[in-house]
Amino acid sequence: MSRITLYTNPLSRARIARWMLEEVGTEYETRILTYNGTMKEPAYLAINPMGKVPAIVHDGDVVTECAAICAYLADAFPEAGLAPPPAERASYYRWLFFAAGPLEAAIVNNSFGFVVPAERERSVGYGNFEHVMDTLDKWLSENRFVAGDSFSAADVYVGAQVNWGLQFGTFDKRDSFAAYAERIAARPAFIRASKLDDEAAAAAQT
């Protein structure tokens, strides 16, 4: 049996990695780390020198970064059907890396109040926040999931971005985003993962 350890904190984007593991349906061990505590200790820094979560260790191999974890697990467990066949992965890769690059950068900068000057937009990978929102809005208005009609690992990453963005006000409120977030939140694996992380977060405060 494959051996997977998830290093996480329930109040972080590591929730994405747990969700992906629940979608895969394999057994895994969970190790909850603390900010400014176990995340910064030598034992964990040997796994991820960034001192951040998530990270997974699968049979001795380390994978960090949420998008990479999603793609890796989809390939490591093909029986879960979370990646399209290689010849049909154009949209799958496109939107997975769109979310990891332009989308996340635009959201973070916008939430910090940073607006790219119009004359400098060519120097920034995403141009401007509204252009990023418009681009994703158009795609999700025409497609049920990011790779077409079927849910994939890319939807774990993109879906988390949309769901959290709407929840915390860092995403534009648009019909396509709301409908997509509703489809994502109805998935049994999402519900299971959310319950586990919510319980872990509550336990950490007691």
Rank of each mutant, 00 (worst) to 15 (best):
P188N: 11
A185S: 15
L33A: 02
N143I: 01
T8M: 15
H131E: 14
I184K: 01
E142D: 11
S2V: 11
L11W: 04
A160Q: 08
F77C: 08
C66L: 01
V124Y: 02
A83R: 08
Y44P: 06
A76P: 04
A46S: 13
P102A: 12
E65L: 12
T38A: 08
T5P: 04
A193L: 05
S176W: 02
T135P: 04
D75V: 02
Y28F: 14
P86A: 15
L45E: 06
L96R: 09
D137I: 01
A204E: 01
S141Q: 08
P86H: 10
G25F: 10
V108K: 13
N109T: 04
R192F: 00
R122F: 08
E88F: 00
R122D: 15
Y28L: 02
A100D: 14
T64C: 13
A99P: 09
N143A: 07
E22R: 11
D137P: 02
F114I: 13
I4P: 02
N48Y: 03
A204R: 02
F98Y: 15
A193S: 12
Y157L: 08
A46D: 13
F177N: 05
I56F: 04
S111G: 07
G101H: 03
T34V: 08
E23R: 06
D155N: 09
T30R: 12
F114V: 13
I69V: 10
A76C: 01
V62D: 11
E182P: 00
I69W: 03
L140K: 06
Y28S: 06
L45Q: 10
A80D: 10
L196S: 10
R89I: 14
T30Q: 15
A203I: 00
Y7S: 09
G37S: 07
T206Q: 13
Q161D: 02
N9V: 04
D61P: 00
I4K: 03
T5N: 05
Y92G: 04
L136N: 07
I32Q: 15
Y157I: 02
D149N: 10
Y126V: 02
G25Q: 14
C66Y: 00
P10M: 11
T170E: 09
A87R: 13
A204S: 07
A202I: 01
Y157T: 04
H58D: 14
A179M: 01
F168W: 13
I4Q: 08
S194I: 03
C70S: 03
R174N: 01
A67K: 12
I191P: 01
R3P: 00
A118R: 13
W164G: 14
A106W: 06
D172I: 04
D175K: 14
A67R: 05
S141L: 04
